[in-house]
Design a protein around this nucleic acid. Structure first.
Lengths: 126, 126
DNA sequence: GTTTTTGCAAACTTTTTGCATGCGG
DNA sequence: CCGCATGCAAAAAGTTTGCAAAAAC
């Protein structure tokens, strides 16, 4: 008889703390920079995929050729507005139910998820 | 005195034809598969970045860790609805001006562009 | 003590770059 | 011809995988 479980280890704790502290969509590398390479990048990736499977983390794409990760439980469902100059990221909330319903009706698809990110210039960079 | 020009060569013609024929967002590799490796992948990438600079091609992200490319001049501005099971891609058009205006007003950002892609199940795969 | 997890090395994928050769006008 | 473009090789950048050693419980 053996017990099966997911362990709460130091690397996992650190990745979670980094996501909490940085509090915006960050890449695996940025997590490791924040943690000053105390743990291996591999462990960052493995922890992230664990957190994604547990639905605690979202993957976000800004189109730089890498993935960004963000804790789910901040604000409810939201999107991002990225300043193309200074890189600042602002959360955007909006009511999308009518938009989604309209797309579903027109396409006959069942929509499971969507990506929506905005890019522009923040007040300071304009 | 030297003439400066962009040449209409065989690789460029082939990449353009592939984009036209495939007629949906495709990866660099898919272009090369379609062209049966008649040209080097490097040339595909170089031609794509030329077409992007000339604003003839858009980059689209489905979140697989690679970029997809699509000719611009099909329908006007549109987004995509991707079937997670069979991979079919459907174009989605919608009026977004009021949504963009609302985000601009609330955030004080100037919005330059945005990404919007939907994922779900097509009628056949439900 | 046994299973799960880690770190390290290596592989893999997508994309970019350097350079000698080749083609277009 | 002469410069721009191509192919090939190699390098980057991000991510994944295999495996022996270490940590968790």
């Amino acid at each position: 008889m053996t017990k099966i479980g997911i362990r709460y280890t130091k690397p996992r704790k650190l990745v979670f703390e980094a996501l909490e502290h940085l509090s915006k969509p960050v890449s695996a590398n940025e997590i490791n920079d924040y943690l000053k390479n105390k743990i291996d990048l591999t462990s960052v990736y493995r922890t992230l995929s664990l957190l994604i499977k547990s639905e605690m983390v979202n993957v976000i794409l800004f189109g730089e050729g890498k993935k960004r990760y963000e804790l789910k439980n901040k604000n409810e469902h939201h999107h991002h507005l990225v300043c193309e100059k200074c890189g600042d990221v602002k959360d955007v909330e909006m009511k999308e139910s009518s938009l989604l319903k309209s797309v579903e009706e027109r396409s006959k698809f069942v929509i499971k998820k969507h990506n929506l990110e905005f890019f522009g210039l923040c007040p300071d960079c304009q």
